[in-house]
């Protein structure tokens, strides 16, 4: 199962980005193998509807879970409609590697 974590940078030592639509990078994690891949968020510089574009990217990637600091109303309803689980982490300054460790249970 694939999961997306919003990240501030393009490696596992970057911190979690508290925004969904305008985050810097998406970290795509394969929960079975633990492999990660980073893709840039094309929506981050858009003046409007960044959440919608970001949500479309997520849907194209075929992930089932998105982890971020918060979601806007447009992204929320779109992800909800496609049955994608949203997770809002309380500690927004966490390092991606820690987030990965906690969700894969290692």
């Amino acid at each position: 199962m694939k999961t997306i974590i919003t990240a501030n940078g393009s490696d596992v030592n970057a911190t979690l980005d508290p925004r969904f639509g305008r985050c810097e990078f998406f970290c795509i994690l394969d929960e079975e193998t633990g492999e990660t891949e980073f893709i840039e968020n094309k929506a981050k510089l858009q003046s409007s509807a960044a959440g919608t574009t970001a949500a479309e990217t997520v849907i194209e990637q075929g992930v089932k879970k998105v982890i971020s600091g918060d979601f806007g109303p447009k992204a929320k309803s779109l992800l909800d409609r496609f049955g994608i689980q949203m997770v809002i982490l309380k500690d927004e300054g966490q390092i991606i590697a820690n987030v990965i460790n906690s969700i894969t249970g290692k």
Binding site: Q85, M86, K90
Partner: peptide, 17 residues
């Protein structure tokens, strides 16, 4: 204390974190 959605009733009702 993390918040999350369960969009699909088939998903197990446990905390994903």
């Amino acid at each position: 204390e993390n918040a999350f959605t369960i969009p699909n009733p088939r998903i197990k009702r446990i905390c994903p974190v």
